[in-house]
C-alpha cells in the first residue's frame, strides 16, 4: 500500500528526515516511536502533504501512485488520513458541517453523488458509537472548547466517517487518561481491517498495550534505526532511548 524509500525532508533548510525506508501493507499496523525531535511528527505531516516541509530526496509510492505529486486534499481523497497531534479549532463551523464538506469533497473526487444533510446525519450518528461520542459534539464548532481528550476522540470520529485506507495517527494517545485511552484505542481497533493500514506515531509505549502493532520502528535522527515486533516497544520503555542513541551515534561516528 505504502512504500517509502530514502525519504529526506527539511524545513527552512534544516534536514529533519534523513533517509526513511518503510513499507506498509494492507491489514498491517505499524508503530513508530522515538525520542523528542526524532522526526516522528514530521514524517506524519510530510506523508499528509504539509507544504511547510520540503522533500529533498527519495520517493513515496501509495497504491502505485507517486504520492509526492499529490496535493494534501488529493491525498485525503485518495484515502490518506492524518489524525493530528494538535487538532485544529475552526470557530463557527460545526463538526457536522465540516465533515459533510469533507465527505462530499471526497465523493465528488471519485465522481460519486454528494450526501444530503439527512442521509449524512444518519451515517454520522452510526459512526459516533465507535468512539462513544455524545451527539452534542455534532453541533459544536470543530474542536472548539473541546478538552484535549475530546479533541483526540473527535479525530478518530473523523477517521470513522471518512473511512480511509491509510491512517496515520500522530500521538493520538498523548495526554489521555486511562479511560479516554481505552475508548480511543477501542475505536481504532474497531476500524482496523484487512483492507486498511494504520501507522501509529507515539511517544509512549502505553498505547501499544491497547492497540497491538504488527511492527515497531524506532525513529532517531530522522532515520529508522531499529525495527522489530511488539517486544521492542517494551524494551524501549524499560531502557529508554539511551541505548538507541549510543548505538546510532557511534555508528555515525564510525
Amino acid at each position: 500500500m505504502l512504500e517509502i524509500k530514502n525519504l529526506h525532508a527539511s524545513v527552512e533548510g534544516k534536514e529533519i528526515l534523513n533517509g526513511i525506508d518503510l513499507t506498509v501493507n494492507a491489514g498491517e499496523v505499524h508503530a513508530i516511536m522515538g525520542p523528542n525531535g526524532s522526526g516522528k511528527s514530521t514524517l506524519a505531516q510530510v506523508l499528509a502533504g504539509h507544504e511547510g516541509f520540503e522533500v529533498t530526496d527519495g520517493s513515496v509510492t501509495y497504491e502505485g501512485k507517486d504520492m509526492l505529486e499529490l496535493s494534501a486534499e488529493d491525498r485525503a481523497c485518495e484515502g490518506v488520513f492524518l489524525a493530528f497531534q494538535y487538532p485544529v479549532e475552526i470557530p463557527g463551523v460545526s463538526n457536522t458541517y465540516f465533515l459533510r464538506a469533507a465527505v462530499n469533497a471526497q465523493r465528488k473526487y471519485h465522481g460519486e453523488e454528494e450526501y444530503d444533510a439527512v442521509d449524512f446525519l444518519s451515517l454520522v450518528k452510526e459512526k459516533m458509537k465507535i468512539v462513544e461520542m455524545d451527539e452534542k459534539f455534532l453541533n459544536r464548532a470543530v474542536n472548539q472548547g473541546f478538552s484535549g481528550g475530546e479533541k483526540k476522540r473527535n479525530e478518530i470520529f473523523h477517521m470513522a466517517v471518512l473511512n480511509p485506507k491509510l491512517s496515520i495517527l500522530d500521538e493520538t494517545d498523548s495526554g489521555l487518561d486511562i479511560d479516554a485511552l481505552r475508548i480511543v484505542a477501542g475505536g481504532v481497533n474497531k476500524l482496523r481491517s484487512k483492507d486498511n493500514a494504520i501507522v501509529l506515531v507515539t511517544h509512549y509505549q502505553r498505547l501499544l498495550n491497547y492497540i497491538e502493532p504488527d511492527f515497531v520502528h524506532v525513529l532517531y535522527g530522522g532515520k529508522i534505526v531499529k525495527s522489530g515486533g511488539k517486544e521492542l516497544a517494551l524494551e524501549l520503555e524499560d531502557q529508554g532511548y539511551d541505548n538507541i542513541r549510543e548505538a546510532s551515534d557511534s555508528a555515525v561516528a564510525v
Binding site: E73, I90, G92, V93, F98, L99
Partner: peptide, 26 residues
Amino acid sequence: EDQIFYCNQRGISTEDAVNMIVNGFC
C-alpha cells in the same frame, strides 16, 4: 497554515477552506 492544512487533509480545497473559516468566524 494550521486551519487550512487541517481542512486540506480532510479533502477540502484551500479556497473552500478560507471561505468556510471566515464565514464561520462571522
